[in-house]
Design a binder for these strands. Structure first.
Lengths: 229, 229
DNA sequence: TGGATACAGTTTACTATAGACACAGTTCGG
DNA sequence: CCGAACTGTGTCTATAGTAAACTGTATCCA
């Protein structure tokens, strides 16, 4: 059985002997992704994936070494390939890149929880990193700095996606839900939060933490470049 | 049995009847945290937590409604209370804040994976948010903006902590481990990444994605403030 | 004051579901 | 037709959680 590395990166070697495989890795990953999108990662069981494909769960083990590897496959297939670069401007490039990446995580929030800890990076994940670093070519940033900018952007996107998944709606809507219920009656312990949420509700500006933070980060990068001439 | 909300936020009401409780919520959460720190979140089972405390697993259910609530408790206790503000400068404040928060997540990387999806925020988590927003009082930022800055910083810290957990060492060390093994032989598919890693290894600058991104974000905030007044 | 009682805590079963293995049965190419 | 590749059945272990019996202690009441 192929291990995770060859599962994610290996070529699809077609065996010649034996009956035709009824399944494909794409179909298996797709079934898992569908279940995770609908009912969360906890609902993804070998049984349910197998049922969705019309086979018994043991058939899956012919294609995937175990559940961990299946989830890793789901993550890489779920995030998918990055879109082609459109703009020439590095800033516009990275802005698009971040918004697209956020969209992917927003579509598959379970992928956030499945990508913690030491793991093997998939090809699509590296494609995304490649694009971000490539957008910074020619800016004068050093190699470590290019990687750091990409890591910062990816981290920001992930962080905001995580918060978006934790608090479904924006700040002012949050007052009506969980956070508001907690804050109410505890204004003395959380005065700054209470004031900020109240003022945010008055301002009525929507949920734009992603764009806001993105603009700050890229402003900071521009400042760094400008300071170097 | 208390639900998650009262478990995290409720006062420790001491019942008068019956035998003395042999356990406390702190002891239970501490045992779980110890196991998670040592062997990861997957190793935290009711059985093992109970064994660590010298009771049977069913005894735990008198204190905690279920495993999900136990993990939520572990997260809030594991992150812990934020340190007191030291500096007057909002930038120094937030820098310290971010570095401290990163330290907490770095110590308990499992907490990253346990804080995805809709959930009830714990008191310590809100304490951290309160401190960040409070540091921005008087800067002229609006309420929504103060929240966005805090969310961006928290997202960045989480993102970098997640990447640190995924790739144990810094960029140049990564070349020797998983990413290097993947990149080797695929230079044509990932030219920018290969160049960036190579150049980073030459430069020899250590792993400072956290500080780098933090500086960019705060530079961006400063720029926003300067542009207003 | 001294039991009776109600309630809190603990334990010993037991159930349901999950991932994973062993092995028998099935299909198809050389 | 031989053997490799695929699928199904039965089984094992571990896990979260339930049900119910048992133990301990503070309060109530004569």
């Amino acid at each position: 059985m192929a291990d995770l590395m060859t599962l994610l990166w290996g070529a699809g070697e077609a065996p010649k002997r034996g009956p035709r495989p009824t399944l494909t890795l794409d179909a298996i990953a797709g079934a898992g992704i569908g279940i995770a999108d609908a009912d969360g990662l906890a609902a993804v069981t070998m049984q349910r994936v197998a049922d969705a494909l019309g086979v018994t769960k043991m058939a899956l083990y012919r294609y995937v070494p175990g559940k961990d590897e299946l989830v890793a496959l789901m993550v890489d297939r779920g995030i998918g390939a990055p879109p082609r670069h459109e703009a020439d401007d590095w800033r516009a490039c990275l802005t698009e890149w971040a918004l697209h990446l956020f969209g992917r995580f927003h579509r598959h929030p379970w992928a956030l929880g499945a990508t913690v800890g030491a793991r093997v990076l998939g090809p699509h994940e590296l494609d995304w990193m490649e694009q971000a670093v490539a957008a910074l070519d020619g800016t004068g940033l050093g190699g470590g700095e290019r990687l750091d900018v990409a890591a910062t952007l990816a981290g920001h996107v992930r962080g905001i996606a995580q918060q978006a998944a934790a608090v479904p709606d924006g700040p002012e809507a949050a007052m009506a839900t969980g956070i508001g219920a907690i804050l109410r009656g505890r204004e003395t312990r959380f005065p700054a939060l209470t004031a900020a949420f109240g003022s945010a509700a008055e301002e009525g500006t929507g949920d734009n933490a992603l764009e806001f933070g993105l603009a700050r980060i890229l402003d900071g990068v521009e400042l760094l470049l400008a300071g170097r001439g």
